[in-house]
Nucleic acid binder design. Structure first.
Lengths: 113, 113
DNA sequence: GATATGTGTCAGCTTTCTTTGACAGGTGCG
DNA sequence: CGCACCTGTCAAAGAAAGCTGACACATATC
């Protein structure tokens, strides 16, 4: 039931969900799949902005987008939620922290000591 | 068992946990309470930086700090984890998104009003 | 052709977060 | 006293995130 992610994966998930717009996007997609332009209108934000947010959610594996051709021939990108499930406890966070790679380093300063 | 937070609360929690240093701090505190200077040495980061990160975690309710007087008379601030437990699913995120206040808006210029 | 829909990207600005060094204070001990 | 700890704060710089308008491309309809 619960997914047990690596530190880097959990970092991307938390970074993706820790934003008002992206939380609202998840809420909007819970009612069904939707395409970018319509989603932008419903949420009242610009499409370039929404595009960026969706990319962040997709990079975290929380949504998936598929480019489809409508019957009229226009290409439309539909996004939908993935059935993710993460538990946030001191234990789960701590075990994820152990697998953090230094690529995600906040700052590197490996001199002598 | 699971905590059901408001949108703003969840936002603070996700923002607090979505950082490599703060994840490591949670991992370090899982082994027991600790005071700031020692924690900074063990994690290899500066005290001012750790102080800021701890403040962020405390603002999210994930840790609590208590200023105590050691037997020798020095004042030391001990931090320890709170037994938090959050479930991250499309449903939990969506319901939290409904209670988001506009105060936590992502950059809004408040010129007129 | 002009308009309306859809797609995506880019540069540049603003805002926030992160980080560091310096500074303030306190206590106990040789 | 000077040294070794502890506490806290501040300003400024650097890095990252957020946001906007303009652009380019496609297709269908008027």
């Amino acid at each position: 039931m619960d997914e047990v992610p690596t530190g880097d994966e959990l970092l991307k998930v938390l970074g993706a969900l820790g934003n008002p717009h992206r939380m609202r996007i998840v809420g909007a997609l819970l009612e069904g799949r939707n395409y970018v332009s319509r989603l932008a209108r419903e949420l009242g934000i610009g499409r370039p902005l929404l595009h960026m947010h969706l990319q962040r959610l997709e990079a975290a594996g929380l949504v998936v987008g598929t480019l489809e051709l409508s019957e009229s021939g226009k290409s439309m990108k539909y996004f939908e939620l993935t059935p993710f499930c993460f538990a946030l406890t001191p234990q789960s966070v701590a075990s994820a922290a152990l697998t953090l790679t230094e690529e995600e380093r906040p700052t590197m300063k490996e001199s002598a000591k």
